[in-house]
Amino acid sequence: MIIALYLKMWRDHWRSLLSWAGVAVLMVSIQMSVYPSIAKSGKGFETFLENYPDAIKKIFRMQDYTTGPGFLSTELYSMMIPLILIAIGATWGASATAEEEEKGTADLLFAFPISRVRIVVTKMAATVTVIAAVGILAALNILLLKSHVHLEVDGPHLFAATASCIATGLFFSSLSFLAGSLTGHKGASLGIATGLALILFLIYSLEALVDTFDGIAPYNPFNWALAGNPLFDGLDSVGLLKLVGSSIVIGALAVGYFNKKDISSQ
């Protein structure tokens, strides 16, 4: 890892990072502040939800909605937080090589006396840390507020859910690294990674309704991340392993291809 380059990546992204982190904190705080009224309505809310069609309940994973884990799962951990981490990861991944090629700065970056592999791996390391940092920030925010709003959630379970979200972010950021390496275009890289994320998320959400999606489920990273319900059941190590393992494979492909390719210039 090259410290100067690692720090540069943080510096280059600090504005967008600040806004994403701000969005995460704001969303967590708003949701947490709503929780007391949901919990108070307790049984009433549960019976209200009983009347929802099963399909809707499944899509939004509404079981035990008024409990701490159920509430956090529905409102934050089965969509918003994974998507924020994916957005950050894909943006950093798309900027890593594709933006440098597009802007023409790749000619000076890869003229430094540092191997291409080390440069790209350093950028990956920076991306992993930023995804983890924002994921942990959200979890800490919840821990900080939970006693104020009387939300009960098991600490290790919360971190298990955080780990799943971070790994999901990793998966799609490694895809943006790969797409950026293959295409050399930032827009294409960002579009492919986030587009795939949205489509796969949609498929995951509709799985309960559409039988034809069942065949995809075992390969859908959102299943690996969310189907194990880490907020209720703790760490889903198999799902996590699948996410991290495939991220590493995709990342290695990105590095391997980039190492051999012709770098484009302006």
């Binding site: 280059d12 700065t105 000076l108 003229a111 430094f112 006396p113 302006q266």
Partner: peptide, 21 residues
């Protein structure tokens, strides 16, 4: 093109694009 070799080369690209921030 090893890093060892690039250490001893200076290169000014035809279009010099830099980190403008």
């Amino acid at each position: 093109s090893s890093p060892e070799l690039r250490k001893r080369i200076g290169y000014l690209p035809g279009v010099f694009a830099t980190y403008s921030n």
